[in-house]
Structures are given as C-alpha cells and as structure tokens.
Simulated scan of single mutants.
Amino acid sequence: MPNAIEQAAQRPLYIGLMSGTSLDGVDGVIVDFSQRTQVILHAGCSFDSSLRAELLALNSTGGSDELHRAALAANAVARHYAQVVQQLLRASGLRAGQIAAIGAHGQTVRHRPQMFDGTGYTLQLNSPALLAELTGISVVADLRSRDVAAGGQGAPLVPAFHQSVFGKPGETALVLNIGGIANLSVLEADGSVLGFDTGTGNALLDGWCLRHTGQPYDACGQWAAGGQILPQLLAAMLADPYLAQTPPKSTGRDLFHADWLEQHLQRHASQAAPVDVQATLTEFTAASCADAVQRFGKGGSELLVCGGGAFNTYLMQRLAALLPGVQVGSTAQRSLPPLEVEAAAFAWLARQCLLGLPGNLASVTGARGPRILGAIYPA
C-alpha cells in the first residue's frame, strides 16, 4: 500500500511560492504537471514595510537578539505564504486536498556556501510546519541545504526547471532571471546545462530608489533613464572580483549590499546626483548580465528574461543594446509570464522531491552529484 506522501505525489497540481532577494513580497502559482508544465493561476502579496526592514536587517551581521527575531520573522513569512495559498485556492475553487504539495523556498537572509575552511551554509527563513498547519497541505522546504552539504553552491536551483520548460533540442537557449540577484541559465544544444548568479539584479537599484524617491522600485526604469552614467563608478563596480569568477558560483546580499555601494560612492562618486547613480546602477546590472551572456552563452540567439527586471523597460533596452545579435525578450513569449517562472520552479522542485527525483544539476551548483532536495512536512 502506498503511503500518504506517495499517493499525494501522483496528483498533478502543486503550488510554488517564491519570495526573493528583492524582499518585495510573495508570488505564488498553481501548476498543473499532468501533461506539460502549465501555470493555471497566479497570486501574490506584498511584504509590509516593517517585515521588509526586519528581513533586510537580518541579512546583516551584528544585530542583537537575532535568534528570537529570526524565528518571529520566519513565522511572519510563513503567514504571508499561507495568505497567498488561500488566495489561490479561493480563486481557483480548488480544495487543499487536491494539491499534492507546496514548494516553499523561504526567505534567504544568509548565503555563504563556501567558507574559508571548506564548509558553508545557506539560510532561508521559513516555518514550514506552521505553513502546513495553516493550509492543510504538505510542504516541501529547505531546498538548498542538501546541495550545499554535497559541496555545491545551493544556487541557482532554477536552471533544471528552465531546461524542462525552455530547453530546445539542437538549439542553445538562454534564460536570465533578474530578481534581487540575477542568474543566467545556458541550456546547451546537446542537453547540458550551465547556470550561475551573474551578480546584482534589482537589489541595489531598489534600495537606492527607495532611499531617494520613497518608491520601492524604479517603475519601468524611468528615473534611471533620466540620468547620466558615471564611467568611473561603473568601471569600479564592474571590477568586483566576483564577476570575473568562473562558474559554479552564487552570491547575494552578503556581497552586494548597501555598504558595498557606499564604499564605491565615497571613492568614485561622492558628489554624484542620485539620478546619475541610479542610471549607473542600472548599467551595472545590464553590463554584468550581458558580460555573462557573452562569455558563457555563445551560440544563443535569444535571451528570455524573467523576474521583476523584465518589467524595467530601460534595463531591457540597455541589455538589448549591449547584446547585438541577441533577441532580448521576456519569458511571456514562451507562455510563462516573468513573475510566474521562479514560483513555478519551486512547485517543480516540490514535485521532484515527492517523486524521489533529483532537483539539482551538479553542472550548475558544483555539487558532487544529483541529490533529492527538500524536507517534507506532511499535511
């Protein structure tokens, strides 16, 4: 007799939840895997300003009472996740029992997979037990740590999903996710996959915009488009050693944070107008992504962009200008809107876990081999 988890794994419907480095909130999707990967509904909610500020503070070292604060923040994240799940169920008319599992990534607050002594860790705040209790649905969480334990980066995990959805036999496909951090998937014509974090995406852009305009992000890149790029500042940022590293590699706010930017500003642009800094940060994101495509994505003639950066018109224009000969567009061209891709990937990872199948690619993360990712919290 199959157990409850084995029975659930055979259901075609999964929910994926994603709250990324941008710290703007939660995206959730219901995905039907019965024939092909098909998102049937999307919902989301924003983080309130106090939770966003606390998550950002917990990404930095040196705070007081961190364990208590992190536990409370994890519960708050899980309650936001549950809110999105209930939105999805109400809007779809589905019952909790019709969903096989929820893939819940958690909110990354530290990502240090390779420490100096050869060990490392990655930490996502989440309370999957609470989420299972609130929704009545099994939860698959802790999706990165097994890969790190196997010597991998634990990120990015989405290239395996990108391959299943966007890969084309005999063609090289390129997928760029621009969230808080940007990552590139190179889906080779022979079926092999390369993926890595290219550097910062929206994290520095959003932080600078909030600081100087009060807005959480630069809508369509309109503010940046009115500024002038500062060549010396741009060159200094592009000289960061991370960008020159070869994959496998991953990064996060542990490197690209407000103090990192402030140090560059003090040295190279102390009197710069805020709008010019925004223009330069936008160019930094575009240039670091374009360099990654040129170095590792040779043979790809189309770049599909997902994540919030796909809606930054100025950023997309700069990407296209820096990649002549490459058609730059969004994943919506392949019937998967930009804000649904990452959440759908975590639904796919939950399914892989329940089916006992690997979720990582050693060619991407550098792990010693394929591993089943995630811990299961039954309903």
Rank of each mutant, 00 (worst) to 15 (best):
G299M: 08
T135W: 03
L187T: 06
P370H: 11
F256P: 13
G356Y: 10
E54P: 00
L322V: 06
R318M: 03
A375G: 08
T313C: 11
L234E: 07
L125V: 11
V84F: 11
V109T: 14
N202T: 08
S164C: 13
Q7K: 14
L349Q: 05
A236E: 01
L187F: 07
I40T: 09
L255R: 15
S46Y: 12
A375H: 00
A182T: 06
Q333V: 00
A91M: 13
G369V: 12
A9G: 02
S60P: 00
G154N: 14
Q222N: 09
H105E: 10
G374L: 01
S19Q: 04
P274A: 06
L355W: 04
R69F: 04
V186M: 06
V275F: 00
A379K: 06
G63L: 15
V186F: 01
P231I: 13
D254L: 02
R267H: 06
A129M: 08
L94G: 12
T198Q: 05
P247L: 02
L56K: 11
S335Y: 00
A53T: 09
A236W: 05
A76K: 12
C209V: 13
D276F: 01
L265R: 06
E340Q: 15
A9E: 05
L67Y: 10
T213I: 14
D240Q: 13
I372P: 02
D147E: 08
R69C: 08
W260Y: 15
D147A: 02
I30N: 04
C209A: 08
F33S: 03
L336M: 15
Q87G: 10
P12F: 00
T246S: 12
Y242N: 09
R112N: 10
H80D: 07
P324K: 09
M1W: 11
P128Q: 12
E171R: 14
L230W: 08
M1S: 15
Q98M: 13
V77P: 07
L131S: 13
G227I: 05
A101F: 03
W348K: 03
A9T: 10
D65I: 13
G369P: 01
I376V: 15
F196Q: 11
E262H: 14
G309K: 10
R253L: 12
V148N: 06
L131K: 05
A101L: 03
T331F: 07
D240H: 15
A292W: 03
T119N: 12
A57F: 02
P338Q: 05
A189P: 12
F47R: 12
V29Q: 01
Q7A: 14
P12R: 02
P159E: 10
Q163A: 15
L89G: 11
G307W: 02
A225M: 04
A239K: 08
Q107G: 04
A321L: 09
A286V: 00
T331M: 09
Q35W: 00
G356T: 07
V277I: 15
T213L: 14
G154D: 15
P358S: 06
S50P: 00
L184R: 05
H162C: 07
G226H: 03
W348P: 10
D254K: 04
G170I: 04
G20E: 00
P247I: 01
L323R: 08
E342A: 03
A76M: 10
G25A: 03
P247C: 09
L355T: 07
R295E: 05
F161Y: 13
F33G: 02
D197I: 03
R211W: 09
L58M: 10
S330M: 05
P337K: 04
A100P: 04
I15Y: 05
S138I: 05
A57T: 14
L315A: 05
D32M: 04
